[in-house]
Amino acid sequence: MSVLSVQDLEVYYKTDRGVAQAVRGASFEVPEGQVVGVVGESGCGKTTLARAIIGVMPKTARIAGGRLMFQGVDLLGLSPREMASRRWRDIAFIPQSAMNSLDPVYRVGTQMAEVLVERGGMDKRAARRRAAELFDMVGLDPGRLRDFPHQYSGGMRQRAAIALALALEPRLVIADEPVTALDVIIQRQVLDTFKELQGRLGLSVILITHDISVVAYASDRVVVMYAGEVIESGATAEVLGRPFHPYTMGLCKAFPELHGGGGTLVPIEGSPPDLIAPPEGCSFADRCPFVEPECRTARPPLVDVASGSLAACRRTSEAEELRVLAGEAGTWLRS
């Protein structure tokens, strides 16, 4: 049973140069109680996707199509009022930079209480007790509730952001690069806490990151995005172990922790296409070492490739050989 089903979502931005198609027909499911990692290079539309789901977007953004089925209801069909009442109670958010996401002029405890009282309907006393309990859960000293955000370290702020997100026991938590701003050791600690809580509370989570090692470490399923599209999805072990899309093969190769020592690290050359005038065919064609002329004529659809995995590539049937080629450094170097 899915908590959330994203179907053919299209999100556009109005810009000075024209309309930027930031999310182009993205589809995936978030199963109950699982962590779905959304991974892709910076600029591929992850944040846009996340903000579309919670329904808080810049004025220039527009949802041009698709559906967001949350427990059987299309969120896009709700009135602004209904949507506002679902925010944080049903869907909560953990931002990348908790520093800027906490109001600098209020104590952290006050900001916790604000949500608990105004959205959770608690009285002040109960809110204070609940806030302390939440702090305890995320591994923070409840005494620090009296501090202001700037008095926290980076890791503490992210923990506070997690506590804030869990305040109203939401069904779905969207975490947008929750540990990106931290250094590696702290990343691990915060992720461990988060993972432990997720398991204990049975949370459904969308974990957004550009770091495939975070996905490998913390998610049950993975959705790979490229230029606003979902180009591959499936169980984490499956997708990362036997990728079918050349972009995923490249991504896995570009990250050290997954790579396991052998071979050399080679980043994917080139840059993603211009989203104001995206290419007609496969959007990865320009950077793909296995590109064929036909790739440029039509967008390949997401197709079943293996047990529950989907990939959008014309050459999925040759994936076995392509994976071998992708393992050689020379493949990714342009002549």
Binding site: V56, F93, P95, S101, L102, D103, V105, E114, V115, R119
Partner: peptide
């Protein structure tokens, strides 16, 4: 434009709370 105002909207706080309690309080400094 600040992130904490975006967050306040994500939290589903009322417009009043967002504009007065968060935006105006900071802008008044």
């Amino acid at each position: 434009q600040e992130d904490f105002v975006t967050m306040a909207r994500m939290k589903g706080l009322s417009n009043w709370a967002i504009v007065i309690r968060h935006a105006a309080r900071n802008a008044l400094l």
